[in-house]
Design a protein around this nucleic acid. Structure first.
Length: 232
DNA sequence: TACCAGGTCCTCG
DNA sequence: CGAGGACATGGT
């Protein structure tokens, strides 16, 4: 078994399944980890959430999900209709709220103009075309696009975020660019949406509490695979 | 107080 | 291309 796969098994054994992506169940305002989206409203939540979480703690993004639920704003046409300033105020606690208000509007404009406002039409594209389409939206970069593909469309692609990059580099891999890191993971794993979903979530769990900027290597379940740890 | 958190865009060599 | 700056709130 290759090292990338061994690391996954070790993390899964240590932390258990993560039940990503968090979405809001009917009747609630707060999203929960219940195994990902099961309808189009929840899929839209994943899309908005992946934009709102850009370079921000999930806690801050989550506050905004709650606010958007209260205002019934998981609705493409309503996002287009509401004023940018008003939307920015509502999503304030996610940080970069002025930019993110525009990004949400850009995404909804794109969806309405090209796909009749329907995610299920957008998601009918194959992965390569879907990614290309998402990247054409100003405000959606590679990580956000891949998060939407994996967690909203539930198609197999590996998401690289700051945690994945930091952990891979500490493990000893030299890759720096997004696509190089993505290839590293995808070439060493079976092409499985379920696996990519869990693995990325597990990397977040490790990166958040253990493999931090100042890492707590003593607590790390994969330190025996880690060149950073070995070199200390 | 300073630093960090589930990035992306724009500008400039 | 790649580096560097701007964007901003909330938690420790």
């Amino acid at each position: 078994m290759n090292k990338i796969f061994s690391v996954y098994n070790k993390l899964y054994f240590h932390f258990g399944p993560q039940h990503w992506w968090p979405v809001t169940e009917k009747g609630n305002f707060h999203p929960t980890y219940s195994g990902g989206p099961k309808n189009e409203k929840q899929q839209l939540e994943v899309c908005f959430g992946s934009i709102l979480a850009q370079n921000t703690s999930w806690k801050n993004a989550e506050k905004v999900i709650v606010e958007l639920n209260k205002h019934s704003l998981f609705d493409v046409k309503k996002i287009i209709k509401i004023g940018a300033k008003k939307l920015a105020q509502i999503i304030r606690s996610s940080g970069y709220h002025n930019q993110k208000a525009k990004k949400l509007k850009n995404f909804c404009d794109f969806l309405l103009n090209k796909y009749d406002g329907k995610l299920n039409l957008l998601f009918k594209n194959d992965i390569a075309e879907l990614r290309k389409q998402l990247l054409s939206v100003n405000g959606i970069g590679p990580e956000t696009a891949d998060s939407i593909i994996l967690y909203a469309a539930k198609k197999p692609i590996f998401v690289i975020d700051a945690y994945a990059k930091r952990i891979a580099n500490r493990l000893g891999y030299k890759e720096q660019r997004y696509d190089e890191l993505q290839n590293l993971f995808m070439e060493n794993l079976p092409n499985s949406e379920k696996l990519f979903n869990e693995y990325h979530a597990l990397l977040v769990e490790l990166g958040k509490d253990i493999c931090k900027k100042k890492p707590l290597c003593g607590k790390c379940p994969i330190n025996r695979y880690c060149s950073y740890y070995k070199s200390k």
